[in-house]
Design a protein around this nucleic acid. Sequence first.
DNA 1: GCCGTTTTCGGCCCGACTGTTTTCAGTCG
Length: 571
Amino acid sequence: MKNQEISKIFYEIAEYLKTERIAFRPYAYSKAALSLETIEEDVSDVYRKGGLKALEEIPGIGKNLALKIEEYLKHGKIKYYDDLKKKLPIKLDEITRVEGMGPKKAKILYEKLKVKNLKDLEKAAKAKKLRGLRGFGEKTEKNIIEGIAFLKRDKGRFLLGEIMPDVKKIISSLKRLKEVDRISTAGSVRRMKETIGDVDILIVSKNPSKVMDFFVSLEGVVKIWSKGTTRSSIRMRKGFDVDLRVVPEKSYGSALQYFTGSKEHNIFTRRTAMDKGLKLNEYGVFKGSKMIAGKTEEEVYKAIGMAWIPPEMRENEGEIELALKNSLPDIIGYNDIKGDLHTHSDWDGGANSIKEMAETARSMGYDYIGIADHTKFLKIEHGLDEKQLLRQRKEIEKLNAELSGFRILQGCEANILNDGLIDIKDEVLKKLDFVIAGVHSSFKMEKEKMTERIIKAMRNPNIDIISHPTGRLIQKRDEYLIDFDKILKAAKETGTILEINSYPERLDLKDFYIRRAKEAGVKMVINTDSHHKDQLKLIEYGISQARRGWAEKKDIINTEPLNRLLKNFRY
DNA sequence: GCCGTTTTCGGCCCGACTGTTTTCAGTCG
């Protein structure tokens, strides 16, 4: 798809234009770049079907940019961009990734010191050549060296599940401060995005300097980027940054709305407000100079004619249109799950016994738990064979006899072999309460073969659930190649349930696919894939992913009580 | 360079903070 390539070029052009101190045109280019990034259609298709006219229909693309897109599609390059690069032959995108380095500083460094890339920049800074240049001093030099070190160490984004425990700790420390009147996370943490760049926190306080003093001296702070009375920014030992903002009580709601984002959501909400003759910013909603809302998010959204939108949905993916009509989906809540169906016990090398897993599940208020240990093909995971599964069944029956008001279900996480067959005999699968099947080998199959492989497993009437259906590991491994539409069609036909795996590096299905599954009428289940009883609480991330995919309670089978749940299983 | 029931010109987000200056430019969100 050419969208991303062209989008990247437009973003770079915007940066180049900033070095020339041109006003507004950079803004137009970045807006167009963002637009290309987010549209679903391939620009080559758009152009093929409707030519330049159709390109101009894309928001943010006018005559001029349509021509540049055409040029790229035809010749694989854009002359305007090449000329800009010739004029300033440096790796702008690379250099501006360094915290504190923007396009204008980059230009100065090229003109004075011939700095062209990250390497040159590091060399010059370490040789103390930056200090003395206009706008540069010792501190800037030091910050640049540290910024480069950070870039080298990390890709800059963290898994939600990786930093959420730290975020909760920071929030509860701040909450204990008597100067803090109100507090909330904002930004991508509040939207529960699968990866987080930095953490935003918003508070109301009548004594901000006290709060800021406390904030910058929190346990684990390794660097103070900035400290003021309305905003401070720190880096934690783990490597992520936290931004704290203090806002007045009367603007808390609008500030929360503003800083929660996403950027695209905000652009659209502000535009909607403008259409109604109102102005929306972080301080409130204004009619002329009169403030008509701001204290709570609910009243802010109401003032611009919308229903309150759950943070997880705020990505400008159609939620605003629905909020205007007051017809947002009633997405699943964090307390709607009645049991976890994908957990591992010490039978396959997990940390805890079946009984311990069940007790933890029960203490979380669940009505049932499914034990789904690996099966024999996965030798590394001590997979169970037919005999062991039948023995395990006896033990679970015994445990259930001792329990009332709670039920342990026996499943297994069987392997879908390369040919789509399952590594456990059907007559044994039939005896279990439910069966999960997943791909755990040969991830690099061709798309068609992999799709066929999974669909064949779905057609086995003993298979109820497909675990982590796309196989991705965030920042580590891409999803395997599958035709998701075909998978959905087969799931619908066979009544197979697709898993939303809550494991922080999986989150599989991801939000985008969840939404498609929901639209296709395919049922899903939110599981943790726990190998330890403490991991059962990871369910929060599966639920947030489901919310980001607009899933409702009725789309998720493990929101149902036991008797209804069991009807979803075929044998 | 885009956009438009405020429509073909004049807006486009702008405030906070740092590090440099000696009143402000650059960066960030």
